[in-house]
Amino acid sequence: MDKCFLTTTPHYDEVTYYLRKWTGEVVKEAKVPCISLDETNATRANLQKRIASHHPVFLLINGHGSTTEIHGQGGVYRDANDRMVSREVILKANDNESITANTIVYARACKSLSQLGKSCVEHGGATAYIGYYLKFVFSADPNLATQDEHDVVANYFKEITNVIPTSILKGHTVDEAVCRSKDAAARIIKRLEAFESENPTAQAILPFLYYDLGMLGYAGDGNATI
């Protein structure tokens, strides 16, 4: 069976709008076939079914998350604040992490690396899990949301995150992909620092570029490739 990868792209708020858009660029550039679980198709049942039937080598999971779970779209469930929300938990520690067996996972979601990521590797059989220790943060100009080329700020954050899946899909190791992201962040930071004193935009976003650089990591085999 040819290699393929899978993406989940829920879309129900501003954050998931950007993550979905950025993922679209990864998919467009990829030379590996993609199974896209888009919007209301980003459910737990679909995720499990498609992984079982297609055996993707790489999972790009977008969505909101916590230390132990990542959400898709559709379904209704009660969140930690006892509110009913229209999201569904699609991947959860001590639950269904076995679906990540023999895959490289990049979770573009908050906080999941230290517990869910570790669980996927240690108990689920994931080859590696790339993610974030704390919240994933980015900045953008919402007035330019439909004009990608003009939103320089969003594009900085897009660049440092998209380089991870594009590197994995080009055959780089997990460690190389994470290093490429950190290098991209470092280069952007150095460039912006050169004129931070005259540029309020640079001053506003530099702390969060640095923050994302520090929050990124991985569990599992750093030498793994697809």
Binding site: E14, H64, S139, A140, N143, T201, A204
Partner: peptide, 15 residues
């Protein structure tokens, strides 16, 4: 000093 046109997006807390 932050430009008024920018938003910061913080996980599921929104923009």
């Amino acid at each position: 000093c932050m430009p008024a046109n920018l938003k910061l997006y913080v996980g599921d807390a929104g923009g």
